[in-house]
Computed example of a mutant assay.
Amino acid sequence: MANPKTPDATRRSERSRRAIFDAALELVGEVGFDKLTIEGIAARAGVGKQTIYRWWPSKAAVLLDAFIGDAGDEEIELPDTGDLEADLKFVLRATADEFNDPSFEAPYRALAIAGANDPELSRQFVSRLQDTGVQAYVNRLHKAREAGTIAADTDLRIAAEMLVSPFAQRWLMRSGPLTHEFTDTLVEQVLRGIATR
């Protein structure tokens, strides 16, 4: 009689990891970060809480990995149609749509708030998520500077932050809606300041 196949531990681990990620993202949307618990994630995922603690030190760490997924390993590239203003408007409009989606907004807001009280989480959040996004803007602005569209002495990092920081501030503080009109105006104002004279 043939021996039964040995279970593939790697596949089982990946299934468990995916179930944990799905559970964390679902639960943070349902109960919020304060009421999110390792026990709740484990129960929803159908795993023991010791499995979660073997891979992550806290609920915030689980949520960060769940939210970033594989995206943190990929370089982001903004479109380059040759029209910097149109490209930036396209990207910021899409970003506004994403931030207005509750399934994106709940975990991102939870991580932003948790990071304010946890320096290590904040460092990881910035290095794995925010810096990647800002660098994509820097890279696109670099191409525009080489093409002579923006002033040669433009500090590209500051210019990129001028595009994303007011957006992030408005969203985080809920000081106004993230509309396409807002993002278009933001792009126009920033480009007016850095355009070649």
Rank of each mutant, 00 (worst) to 15 (best):
E39C: 02
A96Y: 04
L88C: 02
E77Q: 00
Y137D: 03
D101W: 09
I68G: 03
A71C: 06
A42E: 01
P119S: 03
G115P: 10
S127K: 12
V134M: 09
N139Y: 00
V31A: 07
A45M: 12
A112S: 14
D34A: 14
G46K: 01
K49L: 01
D131P: 02
F67C: 08
A71S: 15
L63C: 08
K35S: 13
L121Y: 05
V47N: 02
R109K: 13
Q130Y: 11
A61L: 05
P107A: 04
D70K: 06
I76T: 06
G46L: 03
R109P: 08
Y137G: 01
R140M: 00
K59H: 05
D34M: 03
R54I: 06
D87I: 00
E30K: 13
E74Q: 10
G48R: 03
P57A: 05
L63M: 04
L111Y: 03
W55I: 11
F33G: 07
E75Q: 13
L36R: 05
K89R: 15
I68C: 11
L88N: 02
D131I: 01
Q124E: 15
R44G: 02
S122K: 07
A116K: 10
A114E: 09
V31P: 13
Q130V: 14
Q130K: 12
E75D: 14
P79C: 01
L63K: 03
G48H: 07
R93T: 15
S122A: 14
L129G: 09
L84E: 06
I68A: 14
L78A: 05
A110M: 09
G32Y: 00
D97C: 07
S58V: 09
A106L: 08
A86I: 04
V91S: 06
V134Q: 09
D73K: 12
A114S: 12
L84N: 05
N117D: 07
A112R: 09
A114V: 11
Y137I: 01
Y53C: 07
E98F: 10
V126T: 12
V28Q: 13
